[in-house]
Design a protein around this nucleic acid. Structure first.
Lengths: 327, 327
DNA sequence: ATGAAAGCGCTAACAT
DNA sequence: ATGTTAGCGCTTTCAT
């Protein structure tokens, strides 16, 4: 292993000078800097991450807790992750992967000083991790919105606005009886923040415009989608507008509508709440409200790093939903 | 921050004793151990990861390079990741996430001693990362099989056998004209190891059983799937058996077959090469050859850790494919 | 069975 | 503008 001493010797300077060339924390004369950089290149020197962390109490690693669990849409998750990793790298940070079911993970990596900051995805309304996060030294950003976000930073799509927007779009297209097909029952049951918020927005517009509007959870299987569609049309046969917040069930919902002789967009309208790419890849390109995963992931990194730099207070950011009309 | 010194004081022992209690590397009398463990619990002490890495040159972190790029099936990727993280945690390791496009990432985390070992997914036949991996201090496991695996450990599904198995299953069901619908063209073009190997196996059985057999890349869009199906049926109208190695195109391939009036399984047979869950979630549950992502990820961790422990030589492991008959 | 002490490789005062 | 030096918190010889 090449150490900073080796580099210092090769460049004819002291170790601290090498350190300062690397960090830019004090001015170095041009010739010295050149020699040091040359030596670094010649020896292909890399600072030892552990030694650095020990001396500076900075790891340049961000912990990311990802839901690898039932009912979560993988493509949405991957987009978040991509956004986080990409942005983290741009800010010279790496990403340590934690999983939702690794209960002690937060405490472990935080108390063990493995990370400088933590981003948590897929937050529930009363998430059990929130008290833990509040107790950590490291700043935290939640992707999602807990019931009480006091003292914590949060980012997310404004799912409540998305629920309103979806309903309003359908109403605007003349539909008086509409329905929300949501995530699978298990996701609804744990009151995953986004699921609840979409429903709230949807109901808000239902009341405001006095529409008839059903809300139904939806399994991701062909059968589950069939049951959900049939349930809605059983209770409200006049339903002609659907807001579908369930990327994996989407093809099966469309399939079931087709089986029942309902054509999109002639007989019924469908608005999807999912990543644009998913909406476009359906049998007919759907009108959709985008879930901009990469953007949100990137914003999460920005927020958490800015809190690291400048002790800024926690803040919540909700991104306005954007609806793109297709079929 | 509580340090090992704090614990030592609280327990009335020396720091080294605390360290040995933690590592189990020498025998400690029962009463001392009790006192130390008590102190650790009381102070909720966590060793500083950086200090540990510095002193022991072990980080207990595994680097995992994941393809977040075009044309890769996310659900397969997530399964691998899940397998890796789960197994890593069981062996008391964490996972640092690297992305394929982060070219310098391998060198950075390896030379910077951020990781003890590296797992690389989605390997191409002549992968440019291979020479880099050969140069690292840390042991490496590839998920996939490069043209020349000498000196490197590899794990994967035996995709060549899977290609043979799929073709043989179709032939065994009486089909004389069959087709392979593969991954998107960009994946084929970069000679991603698994794509090539499936084709090789498929062609092997074609020759062996003198079948007529087309091979076609397949975009993941509805349109792309339509084109691929039409292309095959244009060139070989008698085709009645399909092996589909493209999870995202699968629903659209089935859709196009239906549009052309071909029913599954009455008129044509379809075998899917994808995770079981994906095959089951189609409009009709498909006969499939499983891609056991979690298992492979877990095996990768086992292999890389065993190389870490015991300086074992590199080895390649190919998991035998399993076909499950459905519709 | 336990302690003392020498690093591991780096950063950041404190010097000049 | 640069060098000297004292840690950062741990592991692991070397002693006893």
């Amino acid at each position: 292993m090449t150490t900073i001493e080796d580099v210092a010797k090769a460049a004819g300077v002291s170790a601290s000078t090498v350190s300062y060339v690397l960090s830019g924390k004090r001015s170095i004369s041009a010739p010295t800097r050149k020699r040091v950089e040359q030596a670094i290149a010649d020896l292909s020197y890399r600072p030892h991450a552990g030694a650095r962390a020990l001396a500076s109490s900075r790891t340049n690693v961000i912990g990311l807790m990802v839901p690898l669990r039932a009912g979560v849409d993988v493509s949405v998750v991957m987009q978040f992750v991509t956004g986080v990793v990409t942005h983290a790298r741009q800010a010279d940070h790496d990403v340590l992967l934690l999983t939702q079911d690794d209960a002690g993970g937060l405490e472990r990596v935080a108390a063990g000083s493995m990370v400088d900051a933590i981003i948590v995805m897929d937050v529930e309304a009363d998430d059990p991790r929130i008290p833990i996060l509040r107790g950590l030294r490291q700043p935290t950003v939640l992707i999602g919105l807990p019931r009480d976000p006091a003292g914590l930073s949060c980012v997310d799509l404004d799912f409540e606005a998305a629920g309103r927007l979806g309903a309003a779009h359908l109403a605007g297209a003349g539909h008086r009886e509409i329905a929300l097909l949501g995530p699978p029952p298990e996701v609804m049951a744990r009151h995953t923040s986004y699921a609840d918020r979409v429903i709230r927005g949807f109901r808000h517009t239902r009341a405001e415009r006095s529409l008839a509007a059903e809300v139904e959870a939806c399994e991701t299987t062909p059968d589950g989608a069939r049951r959900a569609v049939d349930a809605v049309l059983g209770r409200a046969p006049g339903t002609t507008g659907f807001l579908v917040h369930n990327e994996r069930a989407l093809p099966h919902v469309l399939g079931r509508l087709a089986e029942r002789g309902l054509r999109v967009p002639e007989d019924v309208s469908v608005v999807a709440l999912c990543p644009t790419a998913v909406a476009m890849a359906q049998s007919v390109p759907l009108t959709s409200i985008d879930i901009p995963g990469e953007v949100i992931g990137g914003v999460a990194v920005d927020m958490v790093l800015s809190r690291l730099e400048s002790k800024q207070p926690a803040e919540s950011r909700l991104l306005a939903p954007v609806l793109t009309a297709r079929d």
